[in-house]
Each structure stands twice: as C-alpha cells, then as structure tokens.
C-alpha cells in the first residue's frame, strides 16, 4: 500500500539539481506554481513544458518516477478536466445535449488544466526527489526567518518539522509491525463493511498513539540530557551555501516569468 508511494521520497544522487541549494529549489518550486497561472495559450504552455522537461533531464532521475507521481492523482485530474470540457461555454460548438456543451474552448481549457496539473506535480516531485527532507526543513527555517520579527516561533516550527520528518519512516515501520501483530491475532484490515473496517483500525491506532507518547517522552528526556534549551544561542552543524549556480537558477526563473508575461494573451 505505502510501498507504491513515490511522492515525497528522496532519491540520492549527484546531479546538477541535487547539488543546488535547497533554498533555491524550494523558492523555485513555489515560484513555478505561482507563474504557471500566467500561462494561457499554447506558446506559454510549450515554454513551461520545455522548462520542466529540462529540469527533469538535469535531475538525472528516470522519467518513470515522475509518471508514477502523477498516477495516484490521475482520477482527480481527469475529473477536473472532464468538468472543464463539459461545462465551458464557447463560440465554436461541436456538440450539444441539454445543458452539456462541448466547445472548442472547453476542450482547450481541459487540455490546459491537464498540463497545469502534470507540470505542477512534476515540479514538486523534482523538489522532493532531489532534496533530503532535512535540507528542506533547513530551507524552510531560513526562508521563514523574517517572520521571527512578528513573533512567529520559527525555531520551534523548524524543530517540529525536522523531528516529524525524521519519524515518518519510523512510524511507518511501527504501523506495519503492529498491523502484522494484530493480523496474527485475527484482524482483517481493509475487509468487510465500513463499520467493520473502522473498528479494525482501533487496535492499530491506540498502540500507535501510546508508542508515540512514550517515544516523545523519551526523546524529550534525551534532548534535555544533551543540553537542549531551546533555539536561543544555538549554532548550526549543517550550513547552507548559496553559490553562483543557485543564482543562475533564480535568474532562469526570472526569465521564464518575463517570457510568460510577454507571451500570454
């Protein structure tokens, strides 16, 4: 079940994209999601696609991964696309049945929506596949830092994020273990009607919560024993380093945005 999930996993590598500063990648990915809404004609979409495919190529990761990333969302995408096609009114009408109208504009809109989804998924998949979760939290902490001026507890948020990320695989393992133990005691997960399925979750959830509480307590004790007193006055072991290629990427995003603004109709 969880084995199929590619999205959000890191694949070690040493490509151009892997070596980029996580801040550059994070800002780039967010920036991309914003500017994709500028695109509104064929030329702009082709431009964006070329840009994303170049990034995929540079990441040196097999395109299979990106397609796998789209798969879990394919029904949502198709649903939206079909709604767009059926309910967009336009001047060139190809087919009409009651309130359902298929027009050229509708079809075009559908295709654009589809591309928008796929491009956003590709771009965020590049980010997660090439960036270690911990580097990502470092980047988030750095980018949130200005908010500390308005009393946002940036250090605490970053700490929680990195602990949470660290424990995702541990908790997944734990879940699997408890599931197996309860299966061996005669529970069938994912079988029967909705009520039975909900009931089967209880013997999984309670032990998971209990062990999380225990783990939290142990972790807090261990952290205190090692002298953790909060964010004030701490130094950093992992230093982020912004080099010229990161600036280059930002410039590339800038040029892309400018091109989109010029080419959109």
């Amino acid at each position: 079940m969880m084995e199929k999930l590619i999205f959000g996993r890191y694949i070690p590598g040493d490509s151009f994209i892997h070596r980029l500063d996580p801040r550059a990648k994070l800002m780039g990915a967010i920036w991309f999601i914003i500017i994709i809404f500028l695109a509104n004609n064929w030329l702009t979409y082709v431009l964006l696609t070329v840009f994303v495919l170049t990034a995929v190529k540079l990441s040196e990761i097999s395109p299979k991964f990106f397609i796998n990333g789209v798969k879990p969302l394919i029904w949502l995408i198709l649903f939206t696309v079909i709604l767009q096609i059926l309910f967009t009114s336009g001047s060139t009408i190809w087919f009409r049945l009651g309130p359902i109208v298929i027009s050229q504009e509708g079809l075009l809109n559908g295709v654009f929506i589809f591309m928008r989804f796929v491009l956003i998924i590709f771009m965020s998949t590049i980010l997660t596949l090439t960036t270690m979760p911990l580097s990502l939290t470092d980047a988030i902490e750095y980018l949130l830092r200005p908010l500390a001026a308005v009393k946002v507890p940036v250090h605490e948020i970053a700490l929680m994020l990195s602990i949470a990320l660290r424990f995702v695989p541990t908790l997944m393992d734990e879940t699997e273990k408890i599931m197996n133990a309860q299966r061996a005691r005669g529970i069938d997960f994912g079988e029967g009607n909705v009520y039975q399925q909900m009931k089967a979750i209880v013997p999984l959830l309670i032990p998971l919560f209990v062990s999380s509480f225990n783990r939290a307590e142990e972790l807090a004790t261990a952290m205190e024993a090692r002298g953790y007193k909060g964010g004030e006055g701490r130094t950093k072991y992992r230093q982020l380093e912004w080099v010229s290629r990161d600036t280059m990427i930002m410039v590339a995003f800038g040029l892309l945005s400018a091109a989109l603004l010029v080419l959109r109709t």
């Binding site: 197996n180 133990a181 061996a184 005669g186 013997p203 309670i206 032990p207």
Partner: peptide
C-alpha cells in the same frame, strides 16, 4: 491459518490496546 500459527513478535507489548 493464522489461528493455527501464533506469532509472538519482537517487543509484543506494543500490540496491547
């Protein structure tokens, strides 16, 4: 089958609920 083969997993105390 699972009734016939009982498994005590490592640290089985984690399965109590």
């Amino acid at each position: 089958l699972r009734k016939k083969v009982g498994i005590v997993f490592q640290f089985p105390e984690a399965q109590l609920f």
